[in-house]
């Protein structure tokens, strides 16, 4: 089954057209990466899917259902987003517990207490963190909370916007392992924006390379690993990445 399909997606902010003709199909259970130039519209694509960038034309459909332009409660249950910046995405005056209970309260789910406890275990956060405020958590712990919040409603599709770029390598490794495990356990579908090709190689099955608001290439991760991307821009990214690692 197709988890997410974007067809001829053009996204606008007022007068400015940000993306041009985006076409992507992601199968259920797949992990798909969106890489490319800074400012090319990767986050914008995620925002349009989530409903935070309502001006678009073309079509977005998730699990066979076409998506409306705004945020809607029903869609929220299937699809959640994790933001790039763990410092900016948690409410500074809410404890971890309050942050995690909120989606349950919105959707009138019962047994909030038990669900919060379960999710903390799932993302590997000790119980002692439950009543802390964000400023008492490290960047990696905050990002775990953000992931836990996204998983609270048991969505099937997770939109990840550079989930590890603000984290140090060892915490990045923890989060990547966590994401990989959760995907396996809960059969999640990922659409992940990143600029880090090694991360793509570790976590993803396919990738799309974006530049100037267009997708220039869609490839299998196997091709990335072999260094066999075709487009010149993709090759440039790949070459710089391997030069650093070299």
């Amino acid at each position: 089954m197709i988890a997410l399909s974007l067809q001829n997606l053009d996204i606008f902010y007022g007068e400015t057209q940000i993306t041009h003709n985006i076409n992507v199909e992601i199968k259920e259970g797949e992990s798909f990466a969106l890489v490319g130039e800074s400012g090319s519209g990767k986050s914008t694509v995620l925002k349009a899917i989530a409903g935070l960038a309502p001006e678009w034309s073309g079509s977005i459909s998730a699990f066979g259902q076409p998506r409306s332009h705004n945020i809607d409660q029903q869609f929220a249950k299937h699809c959640q987003m994790v933001f790039q910046d763990p410092y900016g995405s948690l409410h500074p005056r809410k404890t971890v517990d309050a942050t995690l209970s909120e989606p349950l309260a919105i959707h009138g789910v019962s047994n909030q207490n038990g669900r919060v406890e379960d999710i903390l275990v799932a993302v590997g956060l000790d119980r002692k963190f439950r009543f802390r405020y964000p400023h008492q958590l490290s960047g990696g712990q905050r990002q775990r909370v953000a992931i836990a919040r996204a998983l609270m409603l048991e969505p099937k599709l997770l939109l990840l916007d550079e989930p590890t770029s603000a984290l140090d390598v060892s915490v990045q490794a923890e989060i990547l392992n966590l994401l990989k495990r959760l995907r396996r356990e809960q059969n999640l579908t990922f659409l992940m924006v990143t600029h880090n090709l090694p991360v793509v190689s570790f976590l993803c099955d396919r990738l799309a390379v974006m530049r100037h608001g267009r997708i220039v290439e869609i490839a299998d991760v196997a091709e990335l690993k072999r260094g066999a991307l075709k487009e010149p821009y993709s090759r440039e990214l790949m070459d710089i990445s391997s030069a650093h690692a070299g």
Partner: peptide
């Protein structure tokens, strides 16, 4: 060394990254 080991590689084959 622990930090270096935690970096994923472009042609990653490990199933799980070592953490510190």
């Amino acid at each position: 060394r622990g930090l270096i080991a935690a970096i994923p590689q472009l042609n990653e084959t490990r199933d799980e990254l070592p953490v510190l």
